[in-house]
Design a protein around this nucleic acid. Structure first.
Lengths: 246, 246
DNA sequence: AAATAATGTGTGTAATTTACACAATAAAAT
DNA sequence: ATTTTATTGTGTAAATTACACACATTATTT
């Protein structure tokens, strides 16, 4: 029988043996990852959903997720989902939040870690083999299965905030892109209109865009210049102090 | 024997029964919460640590944490820690990140969810009953047990960023505070010097400070005016669009 | 050759940020 | 009571950044 550690006034401190026994038997919980996979297509921000297979949620859509295996790193579990579902490897993936209400899942206690992923739909387009998968416009996503609506909304809000302070949004575009595409992307994510001249000035002033000396192809109007984003320079120069502002 | 769902091309989709069986037997993992509890005292940012009880980490300090029970909400588990360790109820608590590497804990597979908490040390001062608990200056925190150093560093970086865009930092001060105290707080958290006049102008311009018509007591110099922060007004007025800037 | 639809560029104004110095006040020391 | 000390409280000018706004240019399509 484990005892409270000598020196503890509270009885909270545990011996290694006690912790070990707790870790190994009781107190275990199923853990899953759910991925909110964003794409950008036809100037719309989209999210990849799968039709829920559970009768209880007949026909409702849900996020892509799976249980984490006991010998699997958490991040690896999220990458695994992406690999399986999109066929893509090096994609942008970031953990957003963990949802741990007791009754959030009908099959029992399942705590889930939500990840956001941003992928270039062009690369992915040919790889949706599974006809239960579908890209949905973010504005029309509602009534998802489980608590996935809440998870989705938190991830979408996270993206809207994050995209203003970090260049992750560019992962939604081809590596070469025009400023028009970039602006359309920001307008779609943030759901606002931006002034074109000021938008360009802003990005040129940041000085992370590399001119590819190449123009757009196959556009029914004057082609725009193509640029790529210099991530290395961004990593060197990124700011830590942005100023107190709320 | 569970089978892949009809209509699945990949065999990834699972039946409810299969999910239920996975949730209920295999694939379970121990889940813990760890709290990075910040305090502000003597113009220094501090963090509350406990001496590790595990022989393996003899004498090393660690974060305050515990396993999550199967019938306990995740957030509730974090509040529980705070309540136990500080005796405080309504404290600021926010989830930061989940750490899920397979070998991060010596007692087996334990995934941990890190929370940051900010408490007013004045309220707490008399309640450290446990002599294994100690407030450490953040700059001198090193070599924590487990992967707690990494967790701490991520939470500290999170705080430094978050405090610039959200008034959570004020939870470290008494509800009535002078602008000098507020500035000291920001300087301690961000580890920079700020211009006093511009700092004041900034905060007054935000217009969330309420003049208490009261001055500091027991200071060995001209007392400063006391203010409180109007959280309700902040909630009504807080900005969503801050501008693209990275 | 004209019409279309987009690209690419600059300037003035307003708002915000930064740098910076001195008088007023309360407490403590004499 | 007077002086000294330490800190509060305030204003302005200069620099920077954000914002609003219009026209000439270039491919493509008709």
């Amino acid at each position: 029988m484990p005892i409270a550690k000598k020196g503890s006034h509270t009885g909270i401190i545990k011996t290694f043996k006690k912790i070990q026994s707790e870790v190994q038997s009781i107190n275990r919980i199923a853990l899953s990852v759910d991925c909110v996979i964003f794409g950008f297509d036809e100037n719309k921000l989209k999210v990849l959903l799968i039709r829920s297979d559970l009768k209880k949620f007949h026909g409702r859509w849900s996020l892509l997720g799976d249980l984490v295996k006991p010998d699997q790193d958490l991040d690896a579990a999220a990458y695994e989902i992406l690999k399986q579902r999109t066929g893509l490897n090096d994609v942008y993936l970031e953990q957003v939040h963990t949802f741990g209400e007791v009754n959030r899942h009908p099959a029992g206690r399942v705590v889930t870690v939500a990840y956001c992923s941003l992928i270039n739909v062009q690369h992915h387009r040919l790889k949706i083999l599974d006809n239960e998968l579908h890209w949905h416009e973010v504005e029309s996503v509602k009534d998802l299965a489980f608590d996935h609506q809440k998870i989705f909304e938190m991830c979408y809000a996270w993206l809207q905030k994050r995209v203003q302070e970090h260049p992750l949004g560019l992962s939604l575009l081809p590596s070469k892109f025009s400023l028009r595409e970039l602006q359309n992307l920001y307008e779609a994510i943030l759901n606002i209109k931006l002034d074109r001249r000021n938008f360009r000035k802003k990005f040129f002033a940041m000085d992370f865009l590399v001119d590819m000396n190449e123009d757009e192809q196959n556009v029914p109007h004057r082609p725009g210049r193509l640029y790529k984003f210099d991530y290395e320079k961004y990593e060197r120069k990124k700011k830590v102090w942005t100023g107190i502002d709320f």
